[in-house]
C-alpha cells in the first residue's frame, strides 16, 4: 500500500489538475459537437446547394481515426486557416469535429423519425417552417436522441485521452509524466485506468437509465449504437 500512497495519493494535485483539463476539454468539445452536429445536419437536410459538401464533411469526420484527425487539425489547420493557435484549442476542435459528424447523423435519424403529419398539422395552423422546427421537431429530436448524445459524450471522454499526444496536460499526460519521473508504472497507470473506466461507466449507466426511462414514459425507442 505504501507505493500507492507515494505514487498516487501524494501526486493527487497533479492528477486533479489533469482531471480538470480533461473535463474542460470534454465539455467544450461536447458543447461544440452538439451545435456543429445540428448545423451539419440541417445543412445536409434542408440547404440544397451545400448538401454534397455537408455529406462529404460528415463522412470525412466519421471515417477518419481520431488520432489522425487530432494531428491533422493540430499541424495542418494552423497553416491553412491560421487557427487553432493553441494545443488546447486544437484538441477541442479535433474532438468536436469528430463527434459533430456522428451527432449530425443521429439528429438526422431523429428528424426523419418524426411523422410527416405533425409538420403538416403545424403548417396548417399557420406556423412558419422555422417555428415548426423550433417548437415541434427540435424538442422531440433532442429527447429521442438524448441517449445517443450521452453515448457520444463517453466517446469524447475516451478520445480525450489522446490529447496528451499534442502536449495538452490532461489526466493521461500527468500520469505519464509521473511514470517518467518515478519509473514505476504499475500503481499510477492502474489508478489512471480505473479513474477513466469508472467515470465512463457512470456516464454510460446514466445514458442507459435515461434510455429506459424515455422508453417507459414516452415510448421512445432508443437507438443506442453498439
Amino acid at each position: 500500500m505504501n507505493n500507492w500512497d507515494r505514487l498516487v495519493w501524494n501526486q493527487r494535485e497533479a492528477l486533479l489538475a489533469g482531471l480538470q483539463v480533461t473535463i474542460e476539454v470534454c465539455l467544450i468539445s461536447f458543447a461544440a459537437a452538439i451545435v456543429g452536429g445540428m448545423v451539419l445536419c440541417l445543412l445536409r437536410m434542408y440547404v440544397k446547394p451545400v448538401r454534397p459538401i455537408a455529406i462529404v464533411l460528415i463522412e470525412f469526420f466519421r471515417a477518419t481515426p481520431i488520432l489522425v484527425q487530432l494531428l491533422w487539425v493540430n499541424y495542418v489547420w494552423p497553416e491553412l486557416f491560421g487557427w487553432p493557435n493553441t494545443f488546447f484549442a486544437a484538441a477541442c476542435t479535433a474532438l468536436a469535429v469528430q463527434s459533430s459528424g456522428y451527432l449530425a447523423e443521429t439528429f438526422r435519424a431523429g428528424i426523419e423519425a418524426i411523422p410527416k403529419g405533425q409538420r403538416e398539422a403545424a403548417y396548417s395552423v399557420g406556423m412558419s417552417p422555422a417555428l415548426t422546427f423550433r417548437r415541434i421537431v427540435l424538442p422531440q429530436v433532442l429527447l429521442s436522441s438524448a441517449p445517443s448524445i450521452i453515448n457520444q459524450f463517453t466517446v469524447i471522454v475516451k478520445s480525450s485521452t489522446l490529447v496528451s499526444v499534442i502536449t495538452v496536460q490532461d489526466l493521461m499526460f500527468q500520469s505519464q509524466k509521473i511514470v517518467n519521473i518515478a519509473y514505476e508504472p504499475i500503481e499510477i497507470l492502474t489508478a489512471t485506468a480505473a479513474m477513466y473506466i469508472g467515470f465512463i461507466f457512470i456516464v454510460s449507466m446514466a445514458g442507459k437509465l435515461l434510455a429506459d426511462r424515455l422508453r417507459r414514459s414516452y415510448g421512445i425507442g432508443s437507438r443506442l449504437p453498439t
Binding site: 471522454v157 478520445s159 493521461m172 505519464q176 497507470l189 492502474t190 489512471t192 477513466y196 473506466i197 461507466f201
Partner: peptide, 11 residues
Amino acid sequence: RNAPDYVMIVW
C-alpha cells in the same frame, strides 16, 4: 467496454 483504447494500450 468502458476503457479508452489509448489507456488500455498503455496499461
